[in-house]
Design a protein around this nucleic acid. Structure first.
Lengths: 156, 156
DNA sequence: GTTCCTGCAAAATTTTTGCATCAGT
DNA sequence: ACTGATGCAAAAATTTTGCAGGAAC
């Protein structure tokens, strides 16, 4: 079998996250481990509720509260990026140790979210971060608009 | 007297917004007018609850539901920019017809939000918008980090 | 006179918290 | 053993919706 959570090998991020948790003196509880395994297998942002549903479906009796607590802990250690794109639910995704990351375009009509990367944008943000009187630890860019198919649909 | 809502003259945005509402065949109800007057006087994002509290304090009997409904309508017409920066509450600000706008830095410790502008960043986003297979109508950039005073406080 | 807008109250959603119990170190 | 992590249930906070009355056109 090949569940959603083990398509990839352990995932470079999972090990990184576990090490960081241990370094912070935190323990390896079941719920937290499950959230790590889940996130390391995703390639774009997921909501707490989706994570919870997926873990439940996979077997372990994980509570939604623990999912939120795990995400909060991971976010606090800079291991998870949290973002909110519009419809009220926050989304979470693994923050790779390499700093490698992407941003998101959201279709305002069908609510679909797609990731994108852009070197020039990252460079502009890096320069900007140096310029401002503020210690910038993370950033997020969200583009809002219409995906090709919704644009088509609008025309009719 | 000089309430919060009339420090500026009508505000270039208020007129623009009223015209757009009229063009869309919508009416000038009390709550909607009050929200427009409030937003045109702000220079950074505000939450629905803050707007509601301010309007109540200023006199008119406006309901929170109407504030949300007005913001939704304005946002739908592209007159208001909606953004979420982290602590669960969405923030709203006037979207000027000139396209002129700013982005935000958020201190993760004291939750303070500050606006900033950056030409290079806008240019990178404009180029990017042309590149992607997506009709980009708006965008938002949020920097997360530590403000000078919280950084200081952390050191102790 | 219609139709839209509004206030109020109730509901739905998302997230947080209290507490007893269990598990990791 | 000690302390932190978890599940469950309840609470809190934010946003949405139903409905009857009032206002704009």
């Amino acid at each position: 079998m090949s569940s959603t959570t083990d398509r990839h090998p352990p995932g470079p991020w999972a090990g990184h996250a576990r090490r960081a948790l241990q370094d912070a003196g935190l323990r390896r509880g079941g719920a937290r481990e499950a959230v790590i395994d889940f996130l390391t297998a995703q390639d774009c942002a997921t909501s707490a509720q989706e994570i919870h549903a997926a873990l439940r479906a996979a077997g372990p009796r994980v509570s939604l509260a623990s999912v939120y607590r795990a995400l909060e802990t991971l976010h606090g250690l800079g291991l998870v990026q949290r973002l909110e794109v519009g419809q009220g639910e926050a989304l979470y995704e693994a923050a790779l140790p390499s700093g490698e990351h992407h941003h998101h375009v959201v279709c305002e009509r069908c609510e679909r979210i797609l990731p994108f990367e852009d070197r020039a944008l990252e460079q502009a943000i890096a320069r900007l971060a140096r310029r401002v009187d503020f210690q910038v630890d993370a950033h997020e860019v969200v583009l809002h608009g219409r995906c090709p198919s919704c644009r088509e649909a609008d025309a009719h």
